[in-house]
């Protein structure tokens, strides 16, 4: 064996060992070294799939890694190794989340606002993370509900063994009334076209300013009328109040004990007496009203009078001719 072989073997070993060292450093640089940080304890309800070496992130920034996972005092506990340059506010909340769909986990810390940081060896508050199994169960339940809802929807919309669904009914109605609907639509089109061009009452109403002005005037008039009406009403109220107090003729008549009221009462009594007399068949007017004989006599009288007048009517032209002819003869 010569010297160069020994040198080659030496180089071979040095390169090999340095390569091993480099790979070891590269593979391990994601785990925080023991001398480079401080420890923080976190107690969870469930550590899920958290493993030693998983990242700890605060607001998305990697601040350390998981140093230990296990049960301490029957509580799932994780110990975090946090880089010295980072401090966790004492009211921060740590939770276990998923880093990827392949089951990688990380600890996500919701940064608090407290000015005091968690001291080395201290405990950080935790909250329950999302367990993928739980989420899958929830999705399962949800999909069942959605399935049920869709079934109901299908039952409403689609035909079910010979029955006619909503769509079928709609389709049939549309088919049957096709012509009518077309006609209606064309009518509507014509109406809207007329409206747009300002034809017809509605069109004019929509398009012409004159009507608007007129309406404005009418409304102004109405307002005037209303105000007048209001004045009238207030006057009326005043009169009614006046009447209620028993003032004036009407007031005296309704509420007051004046002479007028007495007179009116007397007048009414007279009227009553008069009507009683009218109703009495023995009185002259009563007879006139109730006795048919008198009515017959009057009728006969009237007939005679008529005849007399008719006679007069017939002889009138002759007498007129006689009167005219008299001077001639």
């Amino acid at each position: 064996m010569n010297k160069s072989q020994s040198i080659s073997v030496g180089i071979f070993f040095i390169i090999g060992i340095s390569l091993l060292w480099v790979v070891q450093r590269q593979m391990s640089d994601k785990a925080v070294q023991a001398s480079e940080g401080y420890e923080v304890v976190a107690r969870f309800e469930n550590l899920l799939q958290l493993r030693v070496g998983d990242d700890i992130r605060m607001a998305g920034v990697r601040i350390g890694s998981v140093q230990y996972t296990g049960l301490k005092d029957r509580t799932p506990t994780a110990i975090f190794k946090i880089d010295n340059e980072f401090q966790i506010p004492s009211d921060s909340l740590a939770s276990i989340g998923m880093a990827g769909l392949l089951g990688n986990n990380l600890v996500s810390i919701d940064m608090g606002s407290s000015p005091t940081p968690v001291s080395p060896g201290g405990e950080v508050k935790t909250q329950a993370g999302y367990d993928i199994n739980h989420v899958v169960n929830e999705i399962g339940a949800l999909s069942q509900q959605v399935g049920g809802a869709l079934k109901n929807f299908e039952a409403i919309l689609g035909a079910q063994q010979g029955e006619e669904g909503m769509f079928q009914t709609l389709g049939r109605l549309l088919k049957e009334n096709d012509k009518k609907l077309t006609q209606t639509v064309s009518n509507l089109e014509a109406i809207t076209a007329q409206l747009a061009s300002g034809e017809g009452t509605l069109g004019k109403l929509l398009m012409e300013d004159e009507i608007y002005e007129e309406l404005k005037t009418i409304s102004a008039d109405l307002q005037n009328t209303l105000s007048e009406g209001e004045a009238l009403l207030s006057d009326t109220r005043e009169i009614v109040a006046h009447v209620k107090t028993g003032q004036g003729t009407l007031g005296g008549l309704i509420y007051g004990e004046t002479d007028l009221a007495v007179e009116v009462e007397a007048m009414i009594a007279d009227l009553r007496e008069f009507s009683a007399k009218l109703n009495n068949p023995d009185s002259t007017i009563g007879k006139l009203l109730t006795d048919d004989k008198l009515y017959g006599e009057v009728q006969g009288l009237m007939r005679k009078a008529n005849q007399t007048l008719d006679g007069l009517g017939d002889s009138a032209p002759i007498s007129a001719v006689g009167a005219v002819a008299k001077p001639l003869f």
């Binding site: 064996m1 072989q5 020994s6 080659s8 073997v9 071979f12």
Partner: peptide, 16 residues
């Protein structure tokens, strides 16, 4: 040692 180094050369280096 000499034999070992020689074998290292034959087995290792020449196999690289």
């Amino acid at each position: 040692l000499k034999r070992i180094v020689e074998q290292c050369y034959l087995m290792g280096l020449s196999t690289i």
